[in-house]
Design a protein around this nucleic acid. Structure first.
Lengths: 410, 410
DNA sequence: CGAGCTATATTTAGATTCTAAATTATCTCT
DNA sequence: AGAGATAATTTAGAATCTAAATATAGCTCG
């Protein structure tokens, strides 16, 4: 299949690739090595880079000058801390401002955009709601495009400065960035979005499942930093898991890996409903009882209302929470057993209330699995998915770095 | 932790590695490319290799002569099929006899060994039983070592010809080839086996979970050929899954990924017992009834007996099969939902009877998950794990090829 | 204030490896 | 035997690395 817009997907495994090789390949590798070092930390003196990369001094300097010429690095005045001996060293740093990336969280009703520099430092945020009624793909595209442009403007950058765009949607997305066939109206969004953003602005678009992006975010800057085997449960209207195994996101054949909403064990052990809906249902049941949930009318029962009532000591609401704990524990048990992650992070709409559920879940887990994962609540708030989209975009930029021609930046 | 014996684990992701580079790296890459082509097919003429690899004729010849000198390839007389014009081409082929690999399936009672050449063509088989009573690690090591040596002798090769040994055990094994702490006596087997086989014979040992190896085998030569997202259910006394996602085996943090035996959903949806035990239990229940399972005494109820009785039209036995179908369907539903494989292969002791369960499982699955996988029964028989061990060993050899000094082969 | 010290930068020589182009070799067919 | 075809081999050129030799810039101290 021809990709259009953002070319997604992975490079061939090394050693199998075909095509001409030559000494220039060596330069490509060394440049990538040096750039990776600069990106991680820096600025570094040449001597430090020699130490870090194992390359010769002459090589490091040549490569750095190459990178400066190409816009990825800059030579900086050596910071002179205290007296020093010897000839002053040249220092080079990564140009985090050589471009920007955009992270988009495209929800059913709301779209959030984040713009960051190439280190991932946030430059601006924007969001917009989809006007009620206008839920066509076209209307959606316009909102998404508009929100991205607004955030860009806010960051003082232009569309041509965007090196990659990560996009999270609440639908299965396969390894190649395609929405699985048959997943409601998101499907039409698939090719449409990547193509539209490419046509309008020339952007590389990386489409990905929202829970997967939340997992990337937790691993990058959240509760799962540094862990290579993690799952993130995004619980709200939907219930989805983003799974990282050995540092890589799991997609499955059609991108439906982790789509727990699809799990139906008929006896009710684990069900298809999102946590929010369950809270509503069970809360409504409770409200209908004489003991009922602080006198709420059934129509007033929302997930938030139930959590609040429980917080206020309402017994019926507390009972609902117990049932929620039980269900979450079962889901986490399945995850623990099948994938043996080191940590499961609870995120999504449930996050604010999850701390309250945590002790119950932790207590129930050892009875359900022999390899219980640690459990933590996400601290990233509502920006987790957009942040993960940034991470995805940055990874893409890093991978393509030396093939990208940078825009002139003022 | 210091590795001893077989160094297991993966290379650094390209681009992050450190150390001196130079033009010789280019030769390393080209040599690997050519060798990979030869390994896949061959023998090839130089012109074919030029086509296959994208390298220049001069380069291909230089690399091939290098590989011949190092023992990995051999120049062959061009097969002259029909009249041909022009100067006869030089042809090179992979030396599948440059060494051998050993695949071991170390079960609780029985150890099976396979010896193959470097293409994976089987040269010999051997097996041995663990003497009852002597279940110490030492006794086990002696049996394993003895079986491997017997198979080698049978293949007419010597221990020094062994380039790698794959070993499958019925326990969680992490990415680094270590048995998870706390998994009964297998634990002591971990370091012991790799170290012992290395000390005695200098072999590189790759330890891996048996279900994982079965998955490799199915993907290589079984029902899952060419598929990148597959799960293999090894059902017998234990219940374990080997999961391949995007072409890679899943291990999880401690190697316990897929250890379904550890899953306990208390309401019985999915349970800890192996299929064989369930058949016994349920069969015993049925036998205790007046209608009872062809008059078997409870002590005579084995999994095989139940399957046989059902085959003979016994109603109680058939009912047991229905319950088995139900349970298998639930397990496969969980796998399908969480990991979205393209195919689930049923293997292990249940395989001979699984064809009979298949229609029932297939019928139940769509009600349990929205992303049902295809289901097939393994056709590899009892050698699946040993064959997967061979595949694992071959992969290791391929990865290390150009760093391995080959033994002189007569 | 200049000599010496130190850490670093720069230059040079040498080795390896690739590609591309020119040359040579070997076989078949007429 | 010669023409034609296909492939091997040789040669020249360019890129890149390492290692070693040389040059430089700032500090320190007599």
């Amino acid at each position: 299949m021809q990709e259009r817009g953002g070319v997604q997907g992975r490079p061939e495994p090394a050693g199998t690739e075909t095509g001409p090789v030559g000494p220039h390949v060596v330069r490509f590798v060394t440049a990538r090595t040096v750039l990776a070092a600069l990106r991680r930390g820096g600025p570094f003196t040449v001597s430090e880079l020699v130490e870090l990369t194992g390359l010769t001094r002459a090589t490091v300097i040549a490569v750095c000058e190459d990178l400066v010429r190409r816009g990825w690095a800059e030579e900086q005045d050596p910071e002179r801390t205290g007296p020093q001996r010897g000839r002053p060293p040249r220092t080079f740093g990564f140009r985090a401002d050589a471009g920007v990336v955009v992270g988009l969280d495209v929800g059913a009703h709301k779209t959030t955009a984040l713009v960051t520099d190439l280190r991932g430092d946030i430059l601006s945020t924007a969001s917009g709601d989809l006007p009620r009624g206008a839920r066509t793909a076209q209307a959606r595209l316009d909102v998404v495009s508009g929100v991205a442009l607004a955030a860009l403007r806010d960051a003082g950058r232009e569309p041509r400065h965007v090196l990659a765009v990560g996009v999270g949607v609440a639908a299965p997305v396969d390894r190649n960035g395609h929405v699985a066939a048959g997943s409601d109206f998101w499907e039409m969004f698939d090719v449409g979005l990547a193509a539209a953003l490419f046509d309008r602005h020339g952007w590389h678009v990386l489409l990905e499942n929202d829970a997967n992006l939340a997992a990337l975010a937790e691993q990058w800057r959240g509760a799962a930093q540094g862990l290579d085997d993690v799952a993130v449960l995004l619980a709200g209207e939907r219930l989805g898991a983003g799974i990282i195994e050995s540092g890589r996101l799991l997609h499955g054949r059609n991108g439906a890996a982790g789509e727990l909403a699809f799990l139906r064990l008929v006896d009710g052990a684990v069900g298809p409903h999102g946590i929010a809906q369950l809270a509503r249902e069970w809360g409504a049941e409770a409200a209908a009882q004489p003991t009922g949930l602080a006198g709420l009318a059934p129509s007033e029962v929302t997930a938030e209302a139930v959590f609040t009532a429980a917080e206020d000591g309402d017994a019926a609401a507390a009972a609902v929470l117990v049932r929620l704990e039980d269900r979450m524990a079962r889901v986490i048990a399945v995850l623990s057993t099948l994938l043996n992650p080191e940590l499961v992070v609870l995120g999504g709409a449930i996050a604010p209330a999850a701390a309250r559920l945590l002790p119950g879940i932790r207590a129930a887990l050892p009875d359900l699995t022999e390899t219980p994962a640690e459990i933590e609540v996400s601290g990233l708030g509502g920006e987790a998915v957009a942040l993960g989209a940034i991470r995805r975009a940055l990874d893409d930029v890093a991978e393509r770095s030396l093939a990208i021609a940078l825009p002139d930046v003022g």
